[in-house]
Design a protein around this nucleic acid. Structure first.
Length: 268
DNA sequence: ATGGTAGGACGCCTA
């Protein structure tokens, strides 16, 4: 029985509710992890998702900024909403669910973007981003015989050269600076996480999940970055059957600047 | 080399 997990930075769940319900109807993932919901919990459009078949919902939202939500067709159990850097930001939640006989601990992350100036000494937002990734080291790809871990979300870092349109031109641009890319890769390897998008599509093939709103023609210039990620513990990585980056969603009406990534697992 | 757009809330901060 297949198990599919999607992740999508939606940039306002209320404004883009029609896009989310369209996505759920067309692709029917078992679970969808949203980031940047920008919605307090009491205003979250849970009823619309329940009507679409996604009645199992965990949310961590706040007014105006950030916010994550995990929607599921299968029952889920909230494990934790962790307050990284003790700022009170809603940037993480984890749930446990049954994925066709396997137990999965699923983390949903929204890592700080980090501002424009890539110097932690003068830019507190960049300092916060580096501190956040450092604290993420506490989240490991735990697994045993019957349970596995999956980590998805907008990590706001494009770690590999093939994750950006121009490695050279972005080396000093926040999201692709060496201190960030090395920090994220070190955290991933230290936590024994596997980068499933890159196991499915190795470099040098380019993968982008985000294109700036500021481009005149995002598709023609195609100056994208891979900011959204799907990681897993080692014991479920061999069960990955497919990963799809839904590039077409960037061209939908009033789109998010990020597109969904859908991972499919099969347990034989 | 620079500035370009979008969302939330209605100033201007964040991305």
């Amino acid at each position: 029985m297949p198990f599919t997990v999607a992740t999508w930075n939606i940039n306002s769940v209320r404004l883009r509710l029609p896009l989310v319900t369209r996505f759920l109807a067309e692709f029917q993932p078992d679970v969808l992890c949203l980031q940047e919901t920008k919605c307090p919990d009491e205003l979250f459009p849970a009823e619309a998702f329940r009507a679409a078949g996604y009645g199992n919902i965990a949310i961590s939202g706040q007014k105006g900024y950030h916010g994550v939500a995990t929607l599921s067709r299968r029952p889920l159990e909230l494990v934790e909403k962790r307050d990284f850097c003790a700022k009170g930001d809603c940037r993480h939640l984890s749930v446990k669910l049954d994925a066709g006989g396997r137990k999965v601990l699923l983390h949903n992350f929204y890592v700080p973007a980090g501002g424009d100036e890539p110097d932690p000494a003068i830019n507190p937002k960049f300092r916060h981003k580096l501190d956040f990734v450092e604290e993420m080291r506490g989240i490991r790809g735990l697994h045993d015989g019957e349970s596995a871990s999956v980590l998805v979300g907008d990590l706001n870092i494009a770690p590999l050269e093939a994750d950006v349109w121009s490695h050279k031109q972005l080396l000093n641009v926040v999201s692709h600076t060496p201190v960030e890319t090395e920090g994220l890769e070190s955290m991933r390897l230290g936590g024994e996480w596997r980068d499933l998008m890159r196991e499915h599509t190795p470099p040098p093939e380019r993968i982008y999940t985000w294109w700036s709103y500021r481009a005149q023609d995002w598709a023609a210039s195609d100056r994208g970055r891979r900011l959204d990620h799907v990681w897993s513990s080692a014991n479920i990585a061999p069960d990955l059957k497919d990963i799809t980056v839904l590039r077409e969603a960037r061209g939908w009406e009033r789109p998010s600047d990020h597109v969904p990534v859908i991972a499919s697992f099969g347990f034989d």
